[in-house]
Simulated scan of single mutants.
Amino acid sequence: MTNQLKTLAFYNSNANSFVEQTIGVDMHQLYHPFIATLPARSPNQQHILDLGCGSGRDSIYFATLGFNVTAIDGSQVLIDLAQSKSAAKQDTIEWYCATFEDIVQENWQHKFTAIWSCASLLHVPYRELPELIEKLLHMLTEDGGLYASFKYGDSERIKDGRFFNDMNEVRWAATKQKITCDCKEETWLTLDQRADRNEAWFNIMIRRV
């Protein structure tokens, strides 16, 4: 079984506990800089792709602000649980079970004003990341932006059955050199907002220029 399949199996097997651990986490310290970079249009004229939506926490939040949201996760179990928590916002959230490979096959060029990939691209192998980010950037409108977060570190590893690609300043500098799309980025560190965690996260905000 490949690392990707093992990671997906973990989320399918632990979906309920994962939702319980993440659905109530306060993410406003990340929502604010993300929303601040969005184009100067009303929310109902914008479309956010939540890439790896997990519990649906962030998709639901963006929908409450009036944004149109496409929420994607590789785990159908997580999609079903997330949908059950978003009944009031079904009209502005489209839910899809899809892998990263499925997503890049969609005809979604210039469809989204923003892509939110919170703790999802960290499951992509380091060597594959530049190409995937490049394809995601082409799904953005000309003034769109992509947010991604990774556990802070300098290696690839397996933990509790999941594959992780950690990121730091050096690894990101090497990654962005392989991205040909014209863009600018900002990076910063934050601490995990879950009460039982003391991990650092490497955050990236990329804007097309």
Rank of each mutant, 00 (worst) to 15 (best):
F150Q: 03
L140K: 00
A71D: 06
Q83M: 14
A200W: 06
Q29P: 06
T180K: 13
K176Y: 04
Y11H: 07
I23L: 15
R57Y: 09
D73Q: 01
L51D: 07
F18Y: 15
N16H: 14
G54F: 07
R197V: 11
K89H: 12
I23V: 15
M167F: 07
C53L: 03
I72H: 02
F62N: 07
R57L: 08
A195K: 12
H28A: 07
W116L: 05
G153M: 04
L30S: 01
R157H: 10
Q45V: 02
I206V: 15
W201A: 09
T175N: 08
A148D: 09
I48S: 07
L136K: 04
T70K: 04
I133R: 04
P43E: 00
K178I: 04
W116Q: 07
N198E: 13
Y31H: 12
L189G: 08
R197K: 14
E20H: 13
P125I: 03
V69A: 05
E169D: 12
H28Y: 09
E199M: 11
K89N: 11
V170M: 06
Y11G: 03
H110A: 15
L137S: 01
S120L: 01
D26Q: 12
F112K: 01
Q29T: 13
A195G: 03
I93L: 07
Q109E: 13
F62M: 07
K178V: 05
E128G: 00
C97N: 05
G66Y: 03
Y126P: 01
T187H: 09
Q83G: 08
W95H: 09
L129I: 07
A114I: 04
P43N: 03
S149F: 06
H138G: 00
L30H: 01
D160E: 11
L5N: 13
N203F: 01
Q90T: 05
N14E: 12
L140G: 03
C183D: 00
L51Y: 02
Q83D: 03
K6N: 14
Y147G: 06
L65N: 03
L38S: 11
P130H: 04
D50Y: 00
G54D: 03
Y31N: 02
K85F: 11
T92Q: 10
G144A: 06
T92K: 09
S17E: 14
Q109R: 13
T190A: 10
L122D: 03
W116M: 05
W95L: 10
Y61R: 02
I60L: 15
C118Q: 11
D102G: 08
Y152L: 11
Q29E: 13
E156T: 10
S84T: 12
